[in-house]
Computed example of a mutant assay.
Amino acid sequence: MTPLISAFHARRRRWLALLGLTPLLQACSPLRLINATVSASTHTVRADQPYGSDPRQQADVYLPARPVAGAPMAVFFYGGSWSSGERADYRFVGEALASRGIVTVVADYRLSPQVRYPVFLQDSALAVRWALDHATSLGASPERLFVVGHSAGAYNAAMLALDPRWLTAVNMTPRQLAGWVGLAGPYDFLPIGNPDVQVAFEWPNTPFDSQPLFQARVHAKAAPRTLLLGANSDSLVNPQRNTLTLAQTLSALGTQVDVELFDRVSHITLIGAMARPLRGLAPVLDRVSGFLNAPPA
């Protein structure tokens, strides 16, 4: 059983029993089961949009069923220790945000061990460049472009927002982002203990400037407004060292930051709470969609 299945299993058993769906648990992973609950009436999907030439450089775009003129656009990056993940598994995130009027791009990116840092950041920047170039044709405003991520994906989003090297390489700057959202992100994780992450960052040769907290201290005055959410009980990414310290650092240097840690979720169920069956755990969707839909400053 994977860590993801373990994290969801107990919480989902009660819900499945109430709906008479317990037999499906043996046949479906929690993500597939949650995605099976996604409403088809809230959105349309433009799948398999290439933002580069590699098979992993593709994205799915979730469009609100009722388009809003000048809608915000969110580019979402999922987690998985930079070594696993598929955009199709995060249909529930695309639907959740699209149901709130947000054009949402769920992007794959190349993974370790096939690549190493900073290739996944380069891919993420290419995906954001593609989103900016297609925003108007997708019904979104280029001035309301956000990056959003969970776990390793929150790291990707943070580095695009805080370290200008990556967007500069695609002829953009962090100032072109209307904001960014990090969910349970690792922002200060040296030294590296996780074997998969050691490979992804070539530990112990990992550069110090690979850390979002380092970049925040250097570039905070140019950082876009920020929403940081986490789980108090997160046993994978320490929320005090990462979420709270980054929030305090950015705020002290003048960046507009909203931050909250929730009690009833874990590292995994924090993103799971975006899905309809788990929204009672924490108001993650309300916080994220409220941030993205706020009028431009």
Rank of each mutant, 00 (worst) to 15 (best):
S235M: 13
L183G: 03
T22D: 07
V61W: 00
D263Y: 00
G79W: 02
N242E: 14
P55D: 03
E202V: 09
T168H: 12
S266K: 05
S266T: 11
Y90I: 01
A59H: 14
T104C: 08
I192H: 06
A157E: 06
S266W: 15
G139S: 09
P224E: 10
L25M: 15
R32Y: 06
F214K: 09
A152F: 02
V119A: 13
R116M: 06
S235W: 04
L19P: 04
Y78T: 09
G272N: 12
H267W: 00
V259E: 04
W82K: 01
A135V: 09
A40G: 13
A275Y: 01
L24I: 03
P224L: 05
T206F: 07
L250Y: 04
M274F: 12
L126D: 11
G80W: 00
R13F: 12
I102F: 02
N238R: 07
L227D: 07
S266M: 05
A127T: 10
L138I: 03
D89I: 01
R279W: 05
G179A: 09
A252V: 02
S137F: 06
A169L: 03
Q215H: 13
V170W: 06
R12I: 15
S53Y: 10
A247D: 04
C28V: 06
F92L: 04
Y78C: 04
G94P: 04
E95S: 11
A252T: 01
A216F: 03
D54A: 09
Q211S: 09
L162G: 10
L285E: 15
L111F: 07
V170P: 04
F77Y: 06
P164Q: 10
Q58I: 07
P3G: 02
N242D: 14
A157C: 10
R116T: 14
I102W: 05
D133M: 09
R14F: 04
L261E: 13
F214Q: 10
D163L: 02
R13C: 14
Q58Y: 11
G182Y: 04
P72C: 08
S235G: 11
S289W: 06
A247H: 02
A27Y: 00
T42N: 15
A125I: 05
N35K: 08
V237C: 07
E260K: 04
A47F: 01
V105L: 00
L97K: 02
A7I: 12
F189G: 11
P186Q: 09
N242I: 00
K221A: 09
R287D: 06
P207M: 12
G94D: 11
L97F: 06
V93Y: 12
Q211L: 02
E86S: 08
T269H: 15
S210W: 13
A71C: 08
V75G: 03
R12T: 15
I268T: 09
L281K: 10
D258P: 12
R66Q: 15
A216R: 08
H150N: 05
L160R: 12
R175K: 11
A223K: 12
T243I: 00
R287W: 09
P212G: 11
A273C: 15
A17M: 04
A157I: 06
A88N: 13
L21V: 03
G149M: 09
Q122K: 14
A220Q: 02
A127C: 12
T206G: 01
G230D: 10
R66M: 03
P23N: 14
T269F: 03
